[in-house]
Design a protein around this nucleic acid. Structure first.
Lengths: 134, 134
DNA sequence: GTACGGCTTGACGTGGACGTCAGGGCAAGA
DNA sequence: TCTTGCCCTGACGTCCACGTCAAGCCGTAC
């Protein structure tokens, strides 16, 4: 199949496929007219890439999965290097989620304090605070 | 004070201050030599900006806080528009954290499945799965 | 005199994953 | 023959918050 068909099957754009090729991630054969030609294996690799990108993986992080498929393995994550990427990503996600949760709490505290100050400035009695710490 | 001193006091760079001025966020007076001049109020505004940026706020989102300080309020979050930004940010953080948690679970499942497949391919008996769903 | 430090403006570089446009080729259908 | 549709390459644009470099001015210390 040609580039337009593959792009449509994978729900992406031809520009994206040319970009992946320029990165050496998804090279294409060429037909007599110099047009890119793909097969079912390419579709599988592309779908693997898109799934991981939807998870927030960077393009380079998908390379082990693609290489794994190209090596003939049944799935992109059948290889140790792919599992290593999974584990790194899990750790990264855990760190990020924890960090965001911290920020969330800080922002929530700022908001509460500012709301309390606003109420007090409006003449309301200082509201009792649960678990006052000082 | 001049730009270098302010930058150091706030732990940032002169380039950053010029950038903020170009965005209309932190305009500066000029002295006889055309050098930028700042005062304590500017330092407070700058610190407000940096705190919010550390929280992950975009630069534009800090504008209501700066405007609030400039209007003479005791704190950058003493104004309704600042509180609105806080609330929007909390909702955004909640959404993002939830999304990341979903992704984390999906990646974790992919990893477990791939590990199980690898063990099985290695000749181990299929491990019993807790809470099998199908 | 001159070296130095701080300041000025202007403008290009960074990163990631593409979007978009320009200019051109090739084949099939009306 | 002309249009339509798909493809090609090359190259600039996008977003955001700056980093970095260039060229030059000004005051001060040596």
């Amino acid at each position: 199949m040609r580039i337009g068909e593959l792009a449509e099957l994978a729900g992406t754009s031809t520009r994206t496929l040319r970009y992946y090729e320029s990165r050496g991630l998804l090279p294409a054969r060429r037909d007599g007219q110099g047009h890119r030609t793909y097969d079912e294996g390419d579709l599988r690799m592309l779908r693997q890439i898109r799934m991981l990108r939807d998870f927030g993986f960077e393009l380079e992080e998908t390379r082990p999965f693609v290489d794994c498929l190209r090596a003939g393995h049944p799935a992109g994550d059948s290889c140790p290097s792919s599992l290593a990427v999974y584990r790194r990503k899990l750790a990264e996600l855990d760190g990020l989620i924890g960090q965001l949760a911290d920020v969330r709490e800080q922002v929530a505290r700022q908001l509460s304090a500012a709301e309390a100050a606003a109420r007090e400035a409006a003449g309301e009695p200082a509201a009792p605070r649960c678990e006052m710490t000082g």
